[in-house]
Design a protein around this nucleic acid. Structure first.
Length: 309
DNA sequence: CGCGTTTGACCGGCGC
DNA sequence: GCGCCGGTCAAACGCG
């Protein structure tokens, strides 16, 4: 209560929070509902907006469907002292988004180690207070999505359990903390509404799912209502490159179009062709049928007319 | 009854 | 050392 008041008063000031770093111009909007979409000009420009420090081209390779190793395994960033963030631009039926990721683990080994470590940490926590003093607490790689959505918690196909909510400084909107409900999976996500643009939601994923998405993989069968409602599922899936299991079972994005798209992104010369199609498409369901989540991830307009700042 | 949410308390990191 | 702040815990509660 008081806290909120305080937050409000401070709202217009500082800029330390993640959401604050997202300029309004970065606000993407939903794709399939034919909402306007603006994107920062230049390749990866929007990454800067999110404070991304390390976004080597390989990043997008890594972001390519699940098969890619770990997105953050870029050798170039050998042990980045701080986090670097990456941006993706997935879209959801009533939302489109950008994403960013922060990478604090640098390679596969580290990732695995991080996972183990996290598990250890959790065990320790349960026992009492763990934390090693010498080591800074290692964080899982993080990916943030900016999503234009009226709904805070986008259904990404995984099941999440909310474990906390905090008022965010400089923002009138609270931040919610979710954890994957799957037993051995320690993936977390934060959801907060941007104070700059209340219509956008910043979703930050942390860690990697150690299990297949509960929602049926697309293409294999019917698409669960949730997936239809919020294809942000895709977002999560590709943003957090899945572990090995995805290499065996075709995951959400098993079509080449996705990688194609990313390639475009990478080269900064995006061909929005197929995206136009989407705009004509009225129903998300049909959308999924014909194209796949790819388009949900990459709103057509997104790359059409880069907006200048 | 099981599962998820709410919410105040608590803890640790960090800046001053 | 102190206070702020982000993140997490866990009891209470709600809902199907």
């Amino acid at each position: 209560m008081e806290e909120k008041e305080q937050v409000k008063t401070e709202n217009s000031m500082a800029n330390s929070t993640f959401s604050d770093q997202i300029p309004a111009s970065c606000a993407f909007s939903s794709s399939i509902f034919d909402m306007p979409c603006e994107v920062e000009k230049g390749s990866l420009g929007f990454m800067d907006l999110l404070g991304i420090q390390d976004y080597s081209p390989s990043l997008f390779d890594l972001l390519q469907p699940p098969l890619a190793p770990h997105p953050l395994t870029s050798p170039a960033s050998s042990a980045p002292p701080e986090s670097s963030e990456v941006v993706n631009a997935p879209a959801t039926p009533n939302s489109s988004s950008i994403s960013s990721s922060s990478t604090e683990a640098a390679n596969d080994d580290q990732t695995k180690a991080a996972e183990e470590e996290e598990q250890d940490q959790e065990k320790n926590k349960q026992q009492l207070k763990p934390k090693k003093k010498n080591q800074k607490r290692q964080r899982e790689p993080r990916f943030a999505f900016i999503t234009k959505s009226e709904v805070d918690h986008l259904d990404d196909g995984y099941r999440w359990r909310k474990y906390g909510q905090k008022a965010v400084k400089n923002s009138p909107f609270p931040r919610s903390y979710y954890r994957c409900t799957t037993a051995a999976c320690g993936v977390k996500k934060r959801v907060e509404r941007s104070s700059d643009d209340p219509t956008t939601v910043v979703t930050t994923y942390e860690g990697q799912h150690t299990h297949p998405c509960p929602v049926m993989p697309r293409g294999s069968l019917g698409i669960p209502p949730e997936a239809v409602t919020f294809s942000a599922a895709a977002a999560s899936s590709f943003a957090m490159p899945q572990p090995q299991y995805q290499q065996q079972q075709q995951p959400y994005f098993n079509n080449s179009s996705l990688s194609l798209n990313f390639n475009h992104m990478n080269s900064s010369s995006i061909n929005p062709t197929f995206l136009h199609e989407r705009r004509l498409r009225p129903s998300p369901a049909s959308l999924l049928r014909d194209h796949g989540l790819l388009e949900d991830l990459l709103p057509s307009q997104m790359f059409k007319e880069p907006k200048e700042e």
